[in-house]
C-alpha cells in the first residue's frame, strides 16, 4: 500500500511519544493509536509479515507508553489532592529528648578512644584503704597529699580516693600482665569549691604494663590519645615532674587546640596547655603488687575530665557541672 510506504514510522513513533508525555494524553492516544490514526489504518492494510511486525511493534510500544503515562498522571493527581498547601516551615511534632551530662559525653569519648587503642575500662570503688591510695603507690609518710587538710579520711585506714590509681593497684594484684587499662571516675580532695576547684571531680588514669615499655611509648600513647581528642595536628611535650608512683615522672602538655599553638589567653600565650601527670611505673610499685620489675615495665598517666570539658567548651566555672541546671545541661 502506498500510504504505508509514505510514512516514516520511526518519526511517527517519536512524535507520538512526545505527544503522550505531554498533558493532552487522550488527544494523543486518539491521534496516534485511535481507529482513525495513521497507524490503525496502516495496520488494517498490512499484508506482509515484515510490515506487520514493524507496525505492531510501534503499536505495542505506544500503548505501553500511554499506560505508563496514565499511571504517572493519576499519581500526580492523587499527590496534588493530598498536599493541601502544607507550610513546611512550621515545626514538627515535638519529641521529648534529654541529654547525657557533658562529663559523661566526654568520659565516653575518652573511653572509646582507649577502647580503640585496646585498653580495658575499670571503674572501681571510691572508698579505698590508705594502703591502696597511698602506701602501695609509694607515697611517703610526709607527702602533703596524705594530710588530713588535703584528703577526706573515714578513719586512719580508710579514705575517699584522691586519684583513680587504686584501680591500677587492684588490677595489677588480680591480673597477669600485659595490662592495658583506663580508670575513669570520681576522686575527692579537700579543696574549697570555687570556679576551678571542686572537692569532687572526675579523673581518668591510664596504665600500661608490658615488656619493654619506655617513656617513648608513653609519649606516643599520650600523643595518639590527644590527637583523637583534639585533632590530628596536636603535639605533646613532656616536662620533668614528681609523682610518688612513677620514676621518672613527667608533666605533659598538648599544643593549644584553640590557637593551634600560636598563643592565646587559654594557653597563657605559651601555645601549650597543661593536661596532666605521667611517668614510668616505679619498680617499687611493681614489687608491692608482686610483679618482677625486671620482667615488666609500664607507664601511667592521668588527667581531669572537667578540665577538658571547660577548655573545649569554654565553661568558665566548674561548679556548673554539679548544679544540673537543664538550661546548661541542654546545651551540649
Amino acid at each position: 500500500m502506498d500510504s504505508l510506504a509514505a510514512v516514516d514510522w520511526a518519526a511517527y513513533e517519536q512524535q507520538a511519544l512526545s505527544a503522550i508525555s505531554g498533558d493532552a494524553l487522550e488527544d494523543a492516544r486518539v491521534k496516534y493509536l485511535g481507529r482513525k490514526s495513521e497507524l490503525a489504518q496502516a495496520l488494517r492494510g498490512v499484508r506482509d509479515k515484515e510490515s506487520g511486525m514493524l507496525l505492531n511493534g510501534v503499536k505495542a510500544r505506544l500503548e505501553a507508553a500511554v499506560t505508563a503515562r496514565e499511571h504517572q498522571l493519576e499519581l500526580a493527581a492523587r499527590r496534588a489532592a493530598a498536599d493541601s498547601g502544607v507550610d513546611v516551615t512550621i515545626p514538627g511534632t515535638p519529641v521529648t529528648r534529654g541529654r547525657l551530662h557533658l562529663l559523661t559525653q566526654i568520659r565516653r569519648e575518652i573511653e572509646d578512644i582507649f577502647l580503640g587503642m585496646g585498653y580495658e575500662v575499670w571503674d572501681g570503688p571510691e572508698v579505698v584503704t590508705v594502703w591502696e591510695n597511698f602506701d602501695a603507690l609509694n607515697t611517703d609518710q610526709g607527702h602533703p597529699s596524705r594530710s588530713k587538710l588535703d584528703t577526706f579520711y573515714l578513719d586512719d585506714d580508710t579514705l575517699l580516693r584522691t586519684q583513680t590509681s587504686p584501680d591500677q593497684i587492684k588490677a595489677m594484684l588480680t591480673r597477669t600482665p600485659p595490662i592495658y587499662m583506663v580508670s575513669p571516675g570520681r576522686v575527692y580532695r579537700r579543696d574549697t569549691p570555687d570556679a576551678t576547684h571542686s572537692p569532687t571531680f572526675q579523673q581518668v588514669e591510664c596504665l600500661a604494663v608490658d615488656r619493654g615499655i619506655t617513656l617513648a611509648d608513653l609519649r606516643g600513647t599520650v600523643q595518639q590519645y590527644f590527637r583523637q581528642l583534639f585533632g590530628p595536628d596536636r603535639d605533646v611535650r613532656m616536662r620533668t615532674s614528681f609523682f610518688p608512683f612513677t620514676e621518672p615522672s613527667v608533666e605533659f602538655d598538648v599544643t593549644c587546640f584553640l590557637c593551634d599553638g600560636r598563643g592565646c589567653a587559654v594557653c597563657k600565650h605559651s601555645g601549650w596547655i597543661e593536661m596532666g601527670g605521667a611517668g614510668w611505673v616505679d619498680p617499687d610499685v611493681f614489687r608491692t603488687v608482686g610483679l618482677d620489675p625486671d620482667d615488666w615495665q609500664g607507664f601511667a598517666f592521668g588527667f581531669g575530665i572537667e578540665r577538658i570539658a571547660m577548655l573545649r567548651h569554654g565553661l568558665p566555672d566548674l561548679r556548673a557541672f554539679w548544679e544540673n541546671d537543664v538550661r546548661i545541661l541542654g546545651q551540649f
Partner: peptide, 28 residues
C-alpha cells in the same frame, strides 16, 4: 631508677613518640 631520672630529665624534649609493641590486644 632514680639515677635514670637524673640523666633522663635533661633529654625529655628529645624522647621520640612510639607505641608499645604488643603481643596481645583487645579493648572492650
Amino acid at each position: 631508677i632514680d639515677v635514670v631520672e637524673e640523666v633522663g630529665r635533661f633529654r625529655l624534649e628529645d624522647v621520640p613518640a612510639t607505641l608499645p609493641r604488643r603481643q596481645a590486644m583487645y579493648g572492650r
